[in-house]
Design a protein around this nucleic acid. Structure first.
Lengths: 222, 222
DNA sequence: ACAAAAGTGTTGAGAGTACACCCATGC
DNA sequence: GCATGGGTGTACTCTCAACACTTTTGT
C-alpha cells in the first residue's frame, strides 16, 4: 500500500540584512533538474533526523555557521506538496525560515562565493522549482513576525542601539518610521534593558540596549 | 542514499461549533499502534495526491461532507516530524485544520457514532501519538485566525445574525463581549451586507447579514 | 402581560501619529 | 567649528472599553 512513497526534503529561506538591504541566500545547482539555476539551500530528510535538524544541517552546510550559534532563529514556514513541483517525481518539501545576525554574515561570506550568494529580496534571478513562490511566502511571514514578535532582534548583535533596530524595521517593511515615535514605542514595551553607551563612534555616543525577552516571544511591536 | 524514506501522512483537526461549544472530531483507532485510542482523522498521502487533497479525503471520509461543499475552510497548520512520534517508525505528518459549518454538522453526526465522535476541546480523552499537542497547536491557531481574519464566518450559514457571530467568538475565545461594542465593531468594518430580517422567531426579529469578503481574508476583527 | 432576545449612544482613557530642534562626540 | 547621528515633548485624532434601557415579536 505504501510501496511508492513521496520523497521528503527541507528547504531553508535564510535571511540576513546586509548593506541596508534584506538578503536571501541562494545556491547554484550543480545537478539536474535545473542545473545551473539558483535555488534555495535544501536536501533530503534523512530517516533518523528530525525536520528541524535537517533544516539546520542545510543551514550549516551552506553558511558555515556553527550549529550552536545562538544567533540563529529558525522556524518552520510551510510544507509545499503540489504534484508537479519537481520534475523528478513526487517531492514534498518542508520549508524553514532562518534569520541570521549580520555580524555572522561577514564571517561566512567566505564560503566560496560562486555557488552560494546573497541576493536582495527585491532583485533575485529566476529560480528552480517553486522557490520564487516560497520566498514570497517567507517575505509575508517575516513581516508578520516582525510586527508581532521579537524575531527582529535575531538580526542584531546582543547589544544594539535603538536606531539599529529601527533600521532593520525600515528595511523589512520598506518604509520610514518617525524616530521619536519609534523610540517611544519600543521603550514603552519594557522589553529592553539599558546597557553602557557605545564609545567608538565619531558622533554623539548612542546608548546600547539588550533584549529582556526571548527571541520569538509574542508581543505587538509596531 | 534515499533507500529508506520517512513515511508521510496527513492529519486533520476538524472543528465545529455545537451546543455552544467548540468541538473537535476524533476517531477510535481500530488497529495498532494505539488500538482503541482516540486520534485525529488521518492517513498516508498517496503518491499522486496533493497534501490538500489528502486532507480533504480524510475530511470527507470521516464526516461524509461532500467535497464540493463551499462551507468548509481548510488550511495547513504545521508539519510534525519528531523521530519518536510514531512507534512504527519514521512518520512525518502534515496537519491541516478544517472549520465546518454547524448546519452541516447535523447531517453528519449520522456517521456511525461509535468510532467517530465530536469532543469538546476543553474535555477530550487521552489521544494517540502526539495528537494532544497538535490539537493544542490548532487551538492557538484558530484564535489567532479569528482575531485577524474572516475565518469565523465559515462556521456560520450564509446569512446570519450579529449575535450568532458574537456567540462563536465568545465560544472560541471563551469570554464574553459587550453586545453594543461588538455590534459597533463588526458593522464598522464594512464587511457585512444587510439582508432581510429573520421571521421565524418568537421574539423581536433579528436582521440577517451576509459576508462581503472571502472567507480567510485578512482583516483585524477583534 | 410576559418572556426572550434585538437594538442602540455616550463618555473617558489610552494609543497612535504628526511634527522640529538641540546635543555630544571625533576630527 | 563642522559633520554626524543621538536624543527628546506636545497636541490631535482615533480606537477601545465600560456601561443600561427600550423595542419587537410570539404566546
Amino acid at each position: 500500500m505504501e510501496k511508492e512513497r513521496p520523497s521528503i526534503t527541507t528547504d531553508v529561506v535564510i535571511f540576513t540584512i546586509h548593506q541596508n538591504d534584506l538578503k536571501v541566500l541562494l545556491i547554484k545547482r550543480k545537478i539536474n533538474p535545473y542545473k545551473d539555476h539558483w535555488a534555495l539551500p535544501g536536501g533530503f530528510v534523512k530517516v533518523n533526523e528530525s525536520l528541524e535538524d535537517a533544516a539546520k544541517r542545510e543551514l550549516v552546510e551552506e553558511t558555515g555557521v556553527t550549529e550552536d550559534s545562538a544567533d540563529i532563529y529558525l522556524e518552520q514556514l510551510y510544507t509545499f506538496g503540489h504534484l508537479e513541483r519537481d520534475p523528478r517525481g513526487r517531492v514534498i518539501t518542508v520549508v524553514y525560515m532562518a534569520l541570521i545576525n549580520s555580524d555572522d554574515v561577514k564571517l561566512h561570506a567566505s564560503t566560496d562565493a560562486s555557488d552560494a550568494q546573497w541576493f536582495s529580496v527585491s532583485k533575485f534571478p529566476g529560480l528552480a522549482f517553486d522557490h520564487a513562490k516560497i520566498i514570497s511566502y517567507a517575505l509575508q511571514r517575516i513581516m508578520w513576525k516582525f510586527e508581532y514578535t521579537t524575531v527582529a532582534f535575531s538580526l542584531l548583535p546582543n547589544k544594539f542601539t535603538i536606531s539599529q533596530l529601527q533600521r532593520i524595521y525600515e528595511i523589512v517593511f520598506n518604509k520610514k518610521f518617525d524616530k521619536r515615535n519609534f523610540n517611544k514605542k519600543v521603550l514603552s514595551l519594557n522589553i529592553l534593558r539599558g546597557e553602557e553607551v557605545k564609545r567608538d563612534v565619531s558622533y554623539r555616543p548612542p546608548k546600547l540596549y539588550s533584549l529582556k525577552k526571548k527571541i520569538g516571544d509574542i508581543i505587538k511591536i509596531i
